[in-house]
Design a protein around this nucleic acid. Structure first.
Lengths: 206, 206
DNA sequence: GTCTATATCGGGATAGAC
DNA sequence: GTCTATCCCGATATAGAC
């Protein structure tokens, strides 16, 4: 089965990006060596430079891709015309399920956020997403009496926190809280989708 | 003012540990160079090796110290005999105020947690702290009807998440949510101590 | 205890052969 | 496109002079 040079090239690029994603997300930028990435991809180290010039460029491609996928999921939900309660419900669903398959992502993002905030904020600005729209939806629902009156910004922060933190702190939750009780982390998080919806929606619906 | 060799030595060790804490916490283990730490301490680089043998040893001392201080604060509150509601109240207070002075700490801990979970779990085991005691307090209060019946483990995870995540994600909150509204992060977090108590306690008290 | 000089290593990147 | 050989730099760590 012959392929054109171009298709071979993109296939290799894909293989490299997948390997690089795994390594960068797990170990962070500095602790990830090009050799590790090459090993993960099963190729020679110098090929990484051939295809992506430098470690920096490769990292940025990987990071931008992961961040874009995250933000796009949010945009789809937030900018749809569904009801606010349904939006919040879906938000919990989509993010917990999505991140459960790769719980290293939150810390990976937080890391880049702390060491290089401009990079991430630029990506965010470019994405055009306005999380403040959610605030307006919430205020409207409060005015209609469908949600109890409380500070909308803190409410949004609460929700994001309860979704993201347990995934970022997986070994902490698993090792310090669940292991004594013989509970599996993935089971706990699956259960959490239901329990968090229940808790959060109960806490805001009068 | 003369000092014995030993007192000079511990003074220098303190200076190094303080400098190393700052650098490690901000940049992470790999991205922190011994030169950076020496600069921060205002001393020659080789002195670091003289006093602490290796970067690894220095890092472990710094990490263990920071982690121990965190866990000790928790132990003091959780193991005291005060009422459960008051415990939760204090928990929010102490941790938000404490971490606000150094918001890099949560990501620093999460990083080590992900790349080297055994290290942290060993420290935790050695500390003897049992966060499960909190679970029992909560169950008791539920049985007494003072707290609404809900899953206690998820409740604990919710609380820890709402406290720690906003600090870990400081540049995200500041840049993506607060900057539009001209709100200062520290002001927001000070306000959060009050708002979070209000929200959380309201959500569990019948 | 503190500094300079140096050994050693690992990692990123490129040149050049195939 | 892929590999080997090589260059170069930054970083850890130690030896040895003061």
């Amino acid at each position: 089965m012959l392929k054109s040079d171009e298709s071979l090239s993109t296939e290799m690029e894909q293989k490299i990006i997948n390997a690089a994603s795994k390594v960068f997300v797990k170990w962070g930028k500095k602790a990830s060596s090009m050799q590790l990435i090459a090993d993960e991809a099963g190729i020679n180290r110098t090929l990484l430079n051939y295809y992506f010039r430098s470690k920096d460029k490769l990292f940025n491609i990987v990071f931008d891709k992961i961040f874009f996928e995250l933000i796009q999921k949010a945009a789809e939900i937030l900018e749809s015309d569904i009801d606010i309660i349904e939006k919040l419900d879906r938000f919990i669903d989509v993010y917990i399920s999505g991140l459960l398959s790769n719980p290293y992502i939150p810390v990976f993002i937080l890391n880049e956020l702390n060491t290089n905030p401009e990079h991430l904020l630029k990506l965010f600005k470019d994405s055009g997403l306005k999380p403040i729209r959610l605030k307006e939806d919430i205020i409207k629902a409060m005015d209609q009496g469908r949600i109890i009156k409380t500070d909308p910004l803190h409410l949004i922060v609460n929700l994001i926190s309860m979704i993201a933190f347990p995934l970022a702190a997986k070994p902490l939750i698993a090792g310090m809280i669940l292991s004594d009780q013989n509970i599996d982390f993935d089971d706990f998080m699956q259960e959490r989708i239901v329990k968090l919806k229940e808790y959060f929606l109960n806490s805001i619906i009068p």
